[in-house]
């Protein structure tokens, strides 16, 4: 176990440090999330009842889009300076450091969204007791988005128009997460209890954690060789 934790922690620490040194990059994703959420009231009108109703969906779609926006940063820099090739050549299992990279990426881009989301939900006048469910659904769901997105990011590595292509590849796969994530908050507000959706999201996270790193590793090998 120790033999695996070493490289995992090393990649995690490295990516977090790199992110910390380029903080503004990270803040841009968060700002994008906030701005997209704040655009909706201008689009649909300031009526409180309506805003309350669309809030979970809006927050979740915004989280999806900002995840997508941040994804091409996941491997692009390492690809450009050759780090990725070195990592692939290293004897450590590819899936292992892929998980480390995705974890670092999520801590940097996903976790801030989870923390900021309840504050934004208050702008939409969401009931306060639903905020916990919202945070939990995002905390379970956004790592799935990062894991699935990593596969797409690896496949589109270094391609012209990679960002748009990534959206086309990955957004259809995000639909179940969106349904259960926003559905959890809706179900809680509707008095049905969100445990079913949250359990499904948790199961989805475990499934993605089990399968996506290997798919991502295969995709990276395809992209690099």
């Amino acid at each position: 176990m120790n033999g695996l934790m070493g490289p995992f922690m090393a990649v995690l620490r490295r990516d977090l440090m790199l992110a910390w040194r380029g903080r503004t990059d990270v803040l841009v994703t968060l700002a994008f999330f906030v701005i997209v959420v704040c655009l909706f009231p201008f689009g649909v009108g300031p009526e409180t009842n309506q805003l309350r109703e669309i809030a979970p969906g809006v927050l979740w779609v915004a989280a999806l889009l900002s995840t997508l926006l941040s994804l091409n940063r996941l491997f692009a820099q390492d690809h450009a300076d050759g780090t990725l090739e070195q990592l692939l050549l290293s004897p450590e299992p590819t899936a292992l450091w892929v998980v480390a990279k995705v974890a670092a990426h999520w801590i940097v881009t996903g976790l801030p969204l989870v923390i900021v989301a309840p504050g934004l939900a208050l702008l939409f006048d969401v009931q306060q007791d639903a905020l916990g469910v919202l945070v939990l659904s995002l905390a379970l769901g956004s790592p799935i988005l990062a894991l699935l997105g990593a596969v797409g990011a690896a496949l589109t590595l270094g391609l012209r128009g990679g960002g748009v292509l990534l959206a086309l590849l990955i957004l259809p796969l995000y639909v179940p997460v969106l349904i259960f994530g926003a559905g959890a908050v809706d179900a809680h507000l509707g008095g049905m209890g969100a445990s079913a959706q949250l359990l499904l999201l948790g199961g989805g996270l475990l499934g993605a954690l089990a399968a996506a790193p290997f798919a991502c590793a295969a995709a990276l090998r395809i992209a690099i060789e």
């Binding site: 590849l169 259809p172 179940p176």
Partner: peptide, 18 residues
């Protein structure tokens, strides 16, 4: 091929969630 397989795995999930 990889994205086709990822899609094929996801098609049932998408269908049932939808």
């Amino acid at each position: 091929a990889l994205i086709a397989l990822v899609g094929a795995v996801n098609v049932p999930i998408i269908y049932f969630s939808v």
